Amino acid sequence: MTFHIEENDQNMSSTLPEISTSNTEPNKPLSNDTAQKVPINTKPKNLANTDNNGNNNNKNNPEQLRRLVMVTGDKGGVGKSTFARGLAQTYINNAVKFVGLDADNSNPHLIRFYEKHANIQRLDISNSDKLDEFVDNLKELVYPKPKESGENQESQSLILLETPSQFMPTLKILITEMGFLGVVNDKCKMRVTIVVVISTIIDCINQLLELYSFCGDNVDYVIVKNLFYGEAEQFTFYDNSQEIKKIQQQLKAKDRSFTSITMPKLAKKSYDYLDVKNLTFKQGLEQDEYPSVFGRIFSWLNNFQGQIKPIKDLFGIDKILTE
Score class of each variant (00 low, 15 high):
114 Y>H: 15
114 Y>S: 14
115 E>C: 05
115 E>P: 02
118 A>M: 06
118 A>W: 06
119 N>C: 12
121 Q>S: 14
128 S>K: 14
129 D>I: 04
133 E>A: 09
137 N>C: 02
141 L>N: 08
141 L>I: 04
141 L>P: 08
144 P>F: 00
144 P>Y: 01
145 K>T: 03
146 P>I: 01
146 P>Y: 03
148 E>K: 11
149 S>Q: 06
154 E>H: 13
154 E>G: 11
154 E>T: 14
156 Q>E: 13
158 L>G: 04
158 L>E: 10
159 I>S: 03
160 L>F: 08
163 T>R: 11
165 S>H: 14
168 M>R: 03
168 M>K: 05
176 T>L: 01
178 M>L: 12
179 G>L: 02
182 G>R: 06
182 G>V: 02
183 V>C: 02
184 V>L: 00
185 N>T: 00
185 N>F: 00
187 K>A: 02
190 M>Y: 09
191 R>W: 03
197 V>N: 15
198 I>R: 14
200 T>W: 12
200 T>V: 09
201 I>K: 15
202 I>M: 05
205 I>L: 14
205 I>T: 07
205 I>Y: 07
206 N>L: 13
207 Q>G: 05
210 E>Y: 04
214 F>E: 01
214 F>L: 01
215 C>K: 05
215 C>Y: 02
215 C>W: 02
218 N>V: 03
219 V>F: 00
220 D>F: 00
